[in-house]
């Protein structure tokens, strides 16, 4: 695995400083795990001075060599075109309004069918994790997609440390609820707080990622800082942001979009060009950042991750369990 120092950003791409005011603690957490590693290449990468908001860079992560690297969506679009209804329903709302979110200190409550329940400081969670880069395509249920270089750690690795009991069949995630910090929660567009969930075997799949950053930086607030889920074979709304609670349960959690419109948004929400949304086709997707005249992209089953995840749904009717 190669470690690279990347600086794909120009001055225009810089998100205002206030979006990153919380990052130092997380950096120090990541430094600690950095000390446990020995490769000189990693040392060089970790200590190299950064030209851009030095404190905001994540110094220590395993870089990805994914083939998707050539398709990366520009940083500018990844951080300004967001569905994060806690800050408003327009795509441009979160980047303007998310500065009110306080991401430090941040703790995550672990509950339910698990041997190690409790309220964990995010720093303590991160201390035990090796951060790595994962370049995934994100396919929104609205028929657009972008390619994002996330930084995070496998959800499976966290779950193993928490030791769920044999009764844990599902995992439920909850976003922060605080209308003071998240003004979009004052409107009843969705039932707050936002809740998402996975079946346990889906959560344990190596692709499921808990993300803390993107493009080599701490997660911008509008992208779901400080901790979010990324499940690349499912529609984007499954990848819940700004997580404050993880609960292990025996029963399928009631998830937000499913409750808002159960005929349109299922619990599984696997990307599938053969299963249209009741009101629009899912066969093709607009590529964010593409030029006006470039044709739409053909949507792939499980968003192109069929080899890794198709086994999870063997024998299931994907039209019924959409």
């Amino acid at each position: 695995m190669l470690i690279k120092k990347k600086s794909p950003l120009s001055d225009n791409d810089v998100t205002p400083r206030q979006h990153y005011d919380n990052s130092r603690a997380l950096i120090s957490a990541s430094r600690r795990s950095f000390l446990t590693r020995s490769s000189t290449a990693m040392l060089a990468a970790g200590l190299a001075p950064s030209t851009l908001w030095a404190g905001d860079k994540i110094a220590d992560y395993l870089a990805s060599e994914s083939a998707l690297k050539s398709e990366l969506t520009p940083y500018e679009y990844v951080t300004t075109y967001n569905n994060f209804y806690e800050f408003g329903t327009a795509k441009g709302d979160p980047v303007v309004r998310a500065h009110t979110l306080k991401t430090k200190p941040w703790s995550v409550s672990i509950e339910g069918e698990v041997e190690k329940p409790g309220v964990y400081d995010l720093e303590d969670i991160l201390k035990r994790q090796q951060l790595e880069e994962r370049i995934y395509r994100l396919r929104c249920v609205e028929a657009w997609s972008m390619v994002v270089p996330w930084i995070g750690f496998p959800l499976a690795s966290l779950i193993k440390q928490l030791k769920p009991t044999s009764k844990a069949k599902y995992i439920e995630f909850t976003t922060l609820y605080d209308p003071e910090q998240m003004p979009g929660q004052r409107s009843g567009s969705l039932k707050w707080p936002y809740v998402e969930g996975l079946r346990m075997d889906e959560a344990m799949n190596p692709l499921s990622l808990m993300a803390t950053g993107l493009y080599g930086e701490m997660m911008p607030k509008q992208n779901g800082a400080p901790l979010r889920l990324v499940v690349p074979w499912k529609y984007g709304f499954k990848s819940i942001k700004s997580i404050v609670k993880i609960r292990f349960s025996e029963t399928m959690p009631a998830t937000s979009w499913n409750q808002a419109a159960s005929g349109e948004y299922g619990f599984y929400a696997n990307v599938n060009p053969q299963v249209p949304h009741p009101r629009w086709s899912q066969r093709r997707e607009r590529v964010i950042g593409a030029s006006l005249f470039s044709p739409k992209r053909n949507t792939e089953l499980f968003n192109g991750y069929a080899d890794e995840v198709a086994y999870l749904y063997k024998g299931m009717n994907l039209k019924t369990f959409f």
Binding site: P276, P278, R279, Q282, R283, L292, P295, K296
Partner: peptide, 19 residues
């Protein structure tokens, strides 16, 4: 722009998109 003037695209998109 959306259908790239492709009849094939339209024949799959239109029946699946009531709007």
């Amino acid at each position: 722009l959306d259908q790239s003037l492709s009849l094939e695209n339209m024949l799959v998109d239109v029946p699946e998109s009531p709007y």
